[in-house]
Amino acid sequence: MRLPEFEYFEPESLEEAINQLAKNNSCTIIAGGTDLVVALKQRLQNSRYLISLDKIPSLKKITKKDDAVIIGAMSTLDDIINYTLIKEKFPALRKAAWDVGSPLLRSIATIGGNICLNTRCRFYNQSLFWRSSREECFKVGGNICHVAKKKNSCVSTFSADIPPVLISYGARVKLVGANEERVIPLENFYSGDGRFPNVILSGSKEILTEIEIPIPQNNLKSCYHKYRMRESIDFPLIGVSVAIQFNEEKRCGDARIIITGAGTGPVEPAQVRGMLLNKKLNANLISDAAEAAVTEIYPFKTTLISPRYKREVAKIIISEAIREVGGI
């Protein structure tokens, strides 16, 4: 498969990039391109203009500012894995970055790209020829969902590894548009709509420039567990990020559990946070929390794995992840 025709710009400043984005309608930002290039080959994207952020050095910096780490959106996953402060303070972030794709992709794929990753589906992520044998689905602008026939909307699955971890650390992202810039909590970046899963893919004409993560206290324990068919080069079937703040008596303070691969966006089972608050972790509590968590996810058969299987696996990896942070 060859790439379609497009024009390619390499602005040298953020202002220039935003102006070009505002000027043209059929415009897509390209970061590392490991996912976008495939989407272009499969004609899932039909952009006439690509704007590369390669030549804007400020987007590639990782810095410590007061009590937060600021990660430029164009930092590669290798940069994240090798950054000392991330190794020390954000083990779950490092693990999630490590779990993306393969070493050959992590040297070019970026954290911004992973945050903006499109949702996936076995009827969508296929070549144009393959897709042409079926009616167009919601995801490409049609009127049907091949996965959930009775649904009135797209159920394609959110499959990024890094956003759940960032949300569990309380990260915020900076979005810069032509007239304003805003900083929003990462969970608000996702819409829950399978067709347009995040702010950028909804066509907001903004650029994600940086991610700000508060440096956690020493008593915050975190981890990321990912389940997939093969140990590398695979999207998560289910991934779970757990970050729990423990007080001096080892009771849970704020507990954030974020699940990927189980909906059109990252899912945070609301009742679990309350269930764990002020409790000491033990085997029964953990198993109850995992049971409760999976009642709040609604996986569809967007891969070859059945929703029921996904739910069972989710239960297991959520328990394992909570056990790991609790040292049980």
Binding site: L3, G33, T34, S52, G101, S102, L104, L105, S107, I233
Partner: peptide, 25 residues
């Protein structure tokens, strides 16, 4: 599609899937 690694080249010494990288990059 960036999945098999047959297209590996070294860029600044690091292995990269060249099928997933635009030449201009």
């Amino acid at each position: 599609q960036g999945e098999c690694g047959a297209c590996t080249v070294l860029i600044n010494g690091k292995p990269v899937s060249s099928c997933s990288l635009l030449a201009v990059k």
